[in-house]
Amino acid sequence: MNGYQPMKLLFAFLGGLVLLFIVAPLAGLFLATSPAEFFETASDKEVAGSIWLTLWTSMMATLLFGMAAIPFSWLLARRKFPFKKFISAVINVPVVIPHSAAGIAILGFVARDSAVGQAGEKIGLNFVGSAPGIIIAMAFVSIPFLINAARDGFASVPEKLEKAALNLGASPARVFFTISLPLAWRSILSGLIMMWARGMSEFGAVVIVAYHPMTTPVLIWERFASFGLDWAIPVAAVFITVCLVFFIVLRMVATRYDNVED
């Protein structure tokens, strides 16, 4: 085993570099922000409003689209159907295209003169420059994360258990809710968290569909473009803090759930 020692050291060194690469800019951001500046920014109405908007729109995007995406993921994991490979590829398109291009595409799709835009207008929904538009943009770029995680989760549930449940008189819907969903829940939860996080941090697609109302990523960019780095840094620090707190709490909840299951 000693022969591996130099290699292990080299790998650890490379790992340290990567870690430093991730941590250093973030740490620099916080070091550049004094506590007074930090709290002043956090209590700035525009900042607080944008953070709140970002949080709830990304959560709505995750919940609304998740309701459709989770059953669809089960289909992808369990059923054979025509063009399944093609459909699986299509699902990942939002990950690989530039997000500004995604924004342009969504804008064309929901603009006032489009069919969707006109239908929305009839029920009083305006997608451009509004929260619903932000939700759609966030969902578009983040939904692959949920679908992929949920599909893998459902695929890892032994099919025999679903068959056994059917054999025991359960309807397919009951099998889904009492067997497939609880057993795939770990992956689904992690997919939901990923989707929410990805939606929350989205800038490119959101800024094109809705410059106003301003989500925090857009606000950070606006402050940077209009006033410079010094104005953008505290907002970024506050937003990153909020994100981190949420993820740590969510991860803790998820881990506790895991332990209960074990």
Partner: peptide, 12 residues
Amino acid sequence: IQRRRVGIVFQD
């Protein structure tokens, strides 16, 4: 399947 009322006990 769910209406057949034949209970299967699997090997595992």
